[in-house]
């Protein structure tokens, strides 16, 4: 199988590392070769962050380049737009509609662009936009946005629910498993 590419983007501190960990676990269990590339250090402090997940028969590069992503999973709307150039021609965006102002917007040096979901669709991207924060809060914690997104992403994969749950259970601390399962289900069925 040709290598498939999933990008997970968001704002440092939003919990994207857990999402990539879950995907890595899931895809390795399916027998694929997998590479996951993370960012540590300074950009984790509220900066724009990206994690690359690649899988297939044999994966070489650990990163995803412009025009290569089959999926962009975004924790924040502006970040989906920022990384749009990485989306493959027929790629799919799955994004949280939450908006977090970056510092240039906070101090009034820049504007947070309006109608980004529509703009991305006009640019020819398939966009699945969802208020993941509300769903995560409904599940019991604002921190479960990552599992809402994973639930939503699972729509686009031909994998049994059991496989996803197995990976969720493997990477989430025991006392938070039920909460995360609920968040996953809310994302999946939203």
């Amino acid at each position: 199988m040709k290598t498939k590419n999933i990008m997970i983007v968001g704002v440092g501190g939003q919990g994207s590392l857990l999402a990539s960990k879950m995907l890595g676990h899931l895809l390795l269990n399916q027998g694929y070769d997998v590479k996951v590339s993370e960012v540590h250090g300074m950009s984790q402090r509220g900066g724009s962050v990206v994690t690359y997940v690649r899988y297939g028969d044999s994966v070489a590069s650990p990163v995803i380049d412009l025009g290569e992503a089959d999926f962009i999973v975004s924790f924040e709307l502006l970040e989906a737009a920022r990384w749009l150039p990485y989306l493959k021609k027929d790629g799919q965006i799955v994004t949280n509609t939450q908006q977090i102002d970056p510092m240039p917007v906070i101090i009034g040096a820049a504007q947070y662009p309006e109608n980004l979901t529509e703009a991305m669709r006009e640019a020819g991207a398939k966009v699945d936009a969802l208020d993941c924060l509300s769903l995560a809060q409904e599940a019991g914690s604002a921190k479960a946005v990552n599992m809402v997104l994973m639930g939503r992403l699972s729509h686009y994969f031909d994998l049994p629910e059991e496989a996803w749950m197995q990976s969720l259970e493997a990477i989430v601390p025991k006392k938070f498993i039920e909460l995360n399962k609920k968040a996953f289900a809310l994302g999946k069925h939203a």
């Binding site: 509220g46 724009s48 412009l66 150039p85 493959k88 970056p102 510092m103 662009p113 703009a119």
Partner: peptide, 29 residues
Amino acid sequence: SQNLIAKALGEEVPESRALDVPIPVRPPV
């Protein structure tokens, strides 16, 4: 990156697209 090497050595790279609106940077804080 792969595209950088592909371009430098005469290989094709995939098409890409971007929005017309300026995307404010998000530096670490």
